[in-house]
Amino acid sequence: MVVDVSVMFILIQTIAVFLILLVIAFAVPTLNPLLYVAIFLFYLLYVLSTIVFPFGRTFSTIFEALPDPFAKLLIGSAILFYVSELIAEHISDAGYGSLASLTHFIVKIFILTLWISQTTRLIEILSTLITK
């Protein structure tokens, strides 16, 4: 029941942020893009710290039976990819599509570097199996 109350609270806060953005759009139209980006980033940080990270910790405890780094790497990669997608879409909507695709590409490369040690172990195991 606590989760339902907190989710409803986040939804009400989302509506409040949307109404604030509408007021800003009509009151100060020249500062609207700057204030929109600032509110988006603060709200994204708030949602990540109150919902996404606790969900990731809970989800990783479910998969404790898996070998140690795999569950954490999967959950971390999914969260990084989704946050990167959100920010890239936000940058693209602002009119900087090439910068958005570049940042999304950088995060994809970062996710691949997180998996390099596990991938090299898997390749070594497969190569020993193939050679025998």
Results as ranks from 00 to 15, higher is better:
F9H: 14
I10K: 15
T14L: 12
V17M: 03
F18M: 06
L19D: 13
L19W: 13
A25Y: 13
F26D: 07
A27M: 10
T30N: 05
L31S: 13
L34R: 09
L35G: 03
Y36N: 08
V37M: 10
A38P: 04
A38L: 15
I39G: 01
F40E: 00
L41I: 14
V47H: 04
V47A: 08
S49F: 14
R57M: 05
T61I: 08
I62N: 02
P67H: 15
A71K: 01
A71F: 02
K72G: 05
G76T: 06
G76D: 08
G76P: 02
G76A: 12
A78D: 04
A78P: 04
A78G: 08
L80Y: 03
E85W: 13
I87P: 00
E89Q: 12
H90P: 05
I91G: 02
A94E: 14
A94Y: 15
G95Y: 10
G97R: 04
G97V: 02
S98G: 09
S98H: 12
S101K: 14
S101P: 01
L102V: 06
V107R: 03
V107G: 00
K108D: 03
F110L: 15
T113I: 13
S117T: 06
T119E: 03
T120I: 11
L122W: 12
L126P: 02
S127D: 11
S127M: 09
I130Q: 09
